[in-house]
Design a protein around this nucleic acid. Structure first.
Length: 468
RNA sequence: GUGGCUAUGGUGUAGUGGUAACACAGAGGCCUGUGGAGCCUUUAUCUCGGGUUCGAACCCCGAUAGCCACCCCA
């Protein structure tokens, strides 16, 4: 019976993050974390499951994300709940619910978490996907946009991905409404050239037509009014300030009047990062903008805010595409090899001892042969192997083998720790960093020779950081 | 959600109607006393279900999944 069943299978659009990919994930996580700390962001993790209404009220129930792609169901207590499709809503809910308005403003929060959208899967697009995000509450100044953009950019450059910053301002709700009408009016005369689907979009959400990839639409839009011309004075001034900061910091950007973004809560500045070699913005690597009315629309006290989120899988996809190797996982410093059961017991103990001293130790206690164990030690990239066999048990000694050159030295067992540390210190001083890691061996071997110099994460010295 | 292409060990591939081959990786061995090399053994009901045929990895239909282009977005 059981053998007639198929083995269990990944749900469509879901993906296991396998050991071989972990170096990429750690790298991006650490880079995001490092930047978050530099820029004064504290980590927050909100639940994956939230009330469905949170998203209909924030992202907007007319948006595709909510109306077509959200996982929503009724739970056992009859509540209408959703798997979160994005991060800002939950963080904003937490900001309000925990009274963070009483903290020194701006409040800066970051996360690195999974999200869910029931979309048709493709490369770089999954139904469960990960985003890191940075949210800033309680500041209306344009410099915050500049800083957020700087930070996001630093993340891409420090993993070696070149991006173009696409930026636009969509004004406030009134201007957007007015502009939508203007755009509708403009396209009305050309309605016959639209597909049925596009006609519906024109009715429902005309701004969405702007970033359509249909060349016909783009042609029709050549003379269309631009949202940037219908901005109110304050928004216009604000946008100019943002661009001014970017100019001053030599951040290149593309003023993209067709960038609108698909979440209702955005106002004023919106931006996206596209891979530099992807002119059409086929797969956006991240995006964000201002959402000054979101806190209020979730019944919080009016609080200007802004945020950015980047897609982890998409960055990794790009890294692989560009054959940028992940930052290697540190190899073990020492490997413990044993021959015979008494030696094995002794090594088991030594392992705990060294490990608790902060030494990176590895072993293969399940293997009996010295040859097999050295093979493993070699594969792991261990710098030294300590060997204890029958002879060493008798003499109460241990062999220290340097894996680089095969030179071995016999030392009394009670001196092993100090002897080992002496050698490790020396290596650390010489800047010898092991580059191989257990799980990514074969791939890393390929890259061993062309690991790029790690770029420093830039810290903007000329800007006051808000660190609590 | 719509359209197109694809599906062979863990991975990458060969086989195009006669009963699955190669490389790499894994496990074990040659070899309880020394790694990067070598040799040997071993690892597949050809994604699943149905059909055509004496015979199907191969042809047909369906399902499923992946990829690509839309839609949309991270």
């Amino acid at each position: 019976m059981a053998r007639e069943l198929q083995p269990p299978q990944l749900l469509r659009g879901m993906k296991d993050i396998l050991p071989s990919d972990q170096p990429y994930w750690w790298w991006i996580f650490d880079t995001a974390r490092n930047l978050a700390e530099c820029y004064g962001f504290d980590r927050i993790e909100t639940p994956i499951l939230e009330a469905a209404s949170l998203f209909t009220r924030s992202v907007g129930d007319a948006t595709d994300i909510v109306s077509k792609e959200m996982y929503t169901f009724t739970d056992k207590s009859g509540d209408n709940v959703s798997l979160r499709p994005e991060g800002t809503a939950g963080v904003t809910r937490a900001y309000i619910e925990h009274g963070m308005l009483n903290l020194p403003q701006p409040v800066k929060l970051w996360y690195f978490s999974p999200f869910f959208r029931h979309d048709r899967p493709q490369a770089g697009r999954y139904r469960q996907f990960w985003q890191f995000g940075f949210e800033v509450f309680g500041g209306q100044q344009a410099i915050l946009e500049a800083q957020l953009i700087l930070m996001a950019r630093a993340l891409y450059t420090s993993v070696g991905i070149e991006t173009t910053l696409q930026i636009n301002s969509i004004g406030d709700k009134t201007t957007r409404l007015q502009y939508a009408k203007a755009l509708q009016a403009f396209l009305k005369s050309k309605k016959s050239e639209l597909t049925d689907e596009q006609k519906i979009t024109l009715q429902k959400n005309p701004l969405r037509l702007l970033d359509s990839k249909d060349p016909k639409i783009q042609e029709l839009l050549v003379d269309a009014p631009q949202i940037i011309d219908s901005l109110d004075e304050v928004s216009q001034k604000h946008f100019q300030e943002v661009l001014g900061y970017l100019d001053e910091l030599d951040v290149p950007f593309v003023l993209n009047p067709k960038l609108v973004r698909g979440l209702d809560y955005y106002n004023r500045t919106v931006f996206e990062f596209w891979a530099a070699d992807d002119e059409g913005g086929q797969i956006s690597l991240g995006g964000g903008g201002r959402y000054d009315t979101l806190v209020e629309s979730l019944s919080g006290r009016p609080t200007p805010a802004l945020g950015f989120a980047g897609g982890v899988e998409r960055i990794i996809l790009k890294l692989k595409e560009k054959q940028i190797p992940p930052r290697p996982i540190a190899a073990p410093e020492v490997f413990l090899a044993q021959l015979g059961d008494p030696a094995r017991r002794k090594m088991l103990k030594l392992f705990e001892q060294l490990r608790s001293q902060g030494v990176r130790v590895a072993e293969a206690m399940t293997k009996d042969g010295i040859k097999q164990q050295l093979e493993v030690a070699n594969k792991l990239g261990a710098h030294y192997t300590l060997i204890v066999g029958q002879k060493e048990m008798m003499d109460d000694t241990v062999l220290i083998r340097d894996m680089e050159n095969g030179i071995q030295e016999e030392v009394p067992f009670n001196k092993v720790e100090s002897e080992l540390k002496k050698r490790l210190e020396k290596n650390r001083a010489n800047g010898v960093t092991p580059v191989t890691g257990q799980v990514t061996l074969e791939r890393l071997d390929k890259y061993k020779d062309d690991v790029p110099a790690e770029e420093e994460v830039p810290v903007p010295h000329d800007i006051d950081l808000d660190v609590e």
